[in-house]
Design a protein around this nucleic acid. Structure first.
Lengths: 339, 339
DNA sequence: GGCCGAGGTGACAACGTTGTCCACATCGCC
DNA sequence: GGCGATGTGGACAACGTTGTCACCTCGGCC
């Protein structure tokens, strides 16, 4: 900038004014400055600007896994809002590790991000209090913050969605409905279990429930165990997209254990149980039969989280907002198999 | 930091030394300083540090679309390497728009990222020369830079992979093999077309080729046109993951137009043509029949790109490297349908 | 002619950190 | 006791920008 100033024969401050489009610069002078900028290939040093101005025009995003389709869609929506506001996005994956989540948040705060969007992995966010008081707002998405912390939050209707799927299976005659959920310490997993259980009422049977971190072997073992019961499940509800896909793969090629005659149509490509899953996923419609899902809107969740953040950044010192997004059932046939 | 210094009764510089773990501080003094830091909740201002030190410990990633599974996997791999080196990742999507790509690169450079990883949308990267000369290294992934710019690049064997898939279809008796590719101005699309064409030799028929930005309607129209030909294709090769999925959906429920008797097994769930696709995708194995693909390794591509970047950042002033990653054919049945 | 206001410009400090250099003890040694 | 080596601490400038304030010039007006 100093070089540009001397090249254009003006003072440092005048260059600054031109660069920032401030008024009160003679058009001729401004032109000379711009010409010098082009000639020297000058570009403003944002680091210095940040230091001086106090804010970074940067938002930090901590999600579970950038590569997971759900979070990727959420991240992309956040990015669009953030870029639209002239800011940039720092993103990082917590890999469902509370320590890493905390470390990332700390790092982002040291970089003085203007705000944070967090899909939390842990349940204790007291470490955030200091940052919040220091003026770095945070918005939680998909899962709420731990006790004692109250900030803007965007969730979906987990329990309602799970109940919706469960009732769909019930309506098609199923009475033995299994549930495969993620680790119950994860907020969404617990809420979905709750919705499933409350929709089932007295039909609930704990032998038909498994809550654990999804893995092909684990899912396979759970399904083996359940299907070997005296009264095996006739339907399966999976608690998130990854579990649905894992279960589909585990069920692939297996036939019903409870007496469907082999002469039925499509017995070899079918599944031994009816199915419904939480979260929509690509190609769910092209499987046979199509997989019925409870769809949420990850992009909407990301967009709203980002908008809440910017609302707060632009001065809203009001009460934290808690948004719950609706979900919708998309019937595709897998839930309508006869029991 | 000033506050910490006075709270601990030492000089500014001593606090700085403690924070940075520099030697030459009395253990007792260091302890007092650390205690003051904790008490005041001090955290170093990275902006000022960056200004002073000259580098940001930040890497910029420009990709086509954060939400696309291929680029999401690539991005996640980049993130892992970057975080592993103690840096942070700024990421943004170009949406296949050269102007936006350029703007994002410019913005990243203004923020003084230490390096860039770019999946380019455009073909003219002369704008990068200035940044490269200014000392901001860039690595290109998935697609090479435009003419006149030579930097580290990671590509996959596009032509070889396309030839592999085409030969696979040929080996199963197909002679009329259609190709659906992306806009030919995209490097990977052009290379894959080339591989397809060279594998086909004299069997090449331009009426069986369509190159355009994927859209459900466009793909449907192309397939309609091709299947209505006197000698329609008996096999289809799709040029990327998105096209494969779009084509699958367009073919859904359609039956062969060229005389397979309706009595065949699985006629209703099958497809009118054999298929192979470039890029693997989730659930390709669970469709009926499973979709044969040429798989590349997006995570490997991202990891290698990031490693090349760090190699250059840590002083490698050597010649730009050009890495070509192998691809592999995963036969799943869709390519083995009889012609 | 003197005064005033507006428009244009510039000097200077400050943002929070780190690198350089210097000052002051303390200690062991001749 | 003088002297250098070593260990510890501090003063100061610099990174590149922007906000504050003051300055200069010029035209219009009494």
């Amino acid at each position: 900038m100093k070089d540009v100033a001397s090249a254009a024969g003006v003072a440092l401050k005048t260059v600054s004014r031109v660069v920032n489009g401030e008024p009160g610069v003679h058009p001729g002078t401004a032109e000379r400055v711009r010409e010098a900028i082009d000639r020297l290939g000058y570009s403003r040093n944002e680091s210095a600007r940040v230091l001086r101005r106090g804010h970074t025009s940067t938002v930090g995003l901590v999600i579970e896994d950038l590569a997971d389709p759900f979070y990727a869609a959420l991240g992309r929506a956040v990015e669009d809002v953030v870029i639209g506001r002239g800011c940039l996005l720092l993103s990082a994956s917590s890999s469902e590790d509370p320590a890493r989540e905390r470390e990332l948040v700390r790092t982002f705060c040291a970089r003085r991000v203007d705000g944070l969007i967090v899909v939390p992995a842990g349940h204790d966010h007291s470490y955030l209090r200091q940052e919040l008081e220091a003026g770095t707002p945070a918005v939680f998405a998909d899962r709420p913050p731990g006790p004692g912390i109250d900030v803007d939050t965007v969730l979906c209707d987990n329990a309602g969605g799970a109940a919706l799927a469960t009732r769909h299976l019930l309506a098609h005659g199923h009475r033995r409905i299994a549930f495969l959920g993620d680790d119950p310490s994860i907020f969404t997993a617990a809420r979905r279990l709750h919705g499933y259980r409350s929709a089932l009422g007295h039909l609930y049977d704990e032998r038909l429930v498994s809550m654990r971190t999804p893995s092909p072997d684990g899912v396979r073992a759970d399904l083996d165990r359940m299907l070997a019961l005296d009264r095996p499940p006739t339907a399966l509800f999976t608690g998130n997209g990854r579990l649905t896909v894992t279960a589909l793969r585990a069920l692939e090629g297996r036939v019903a254990a409870h007496g469907t005659t082999a002469g039925g149509t499509g017995a070899t490509t079918g599944r031994p149980v009816a199915m419904a899953g939480f979260d929509d996923f690509e190609l769910a419609d092209l499987l046979t039969p199509g997989v019925t899902v409870v769809a949420q809107d990850p992009a909407g969740m990301g967009r709203i989280a980002a908008e809440l953040l910017f609302r707060r950044l632009s001065g809203g010192g009001d009460q934290p907002r808690h948004v719950t997004l609706p979900v919708r059932l998309i019937p595709r046939g897998s839930g309508e198999l006869p029991p």
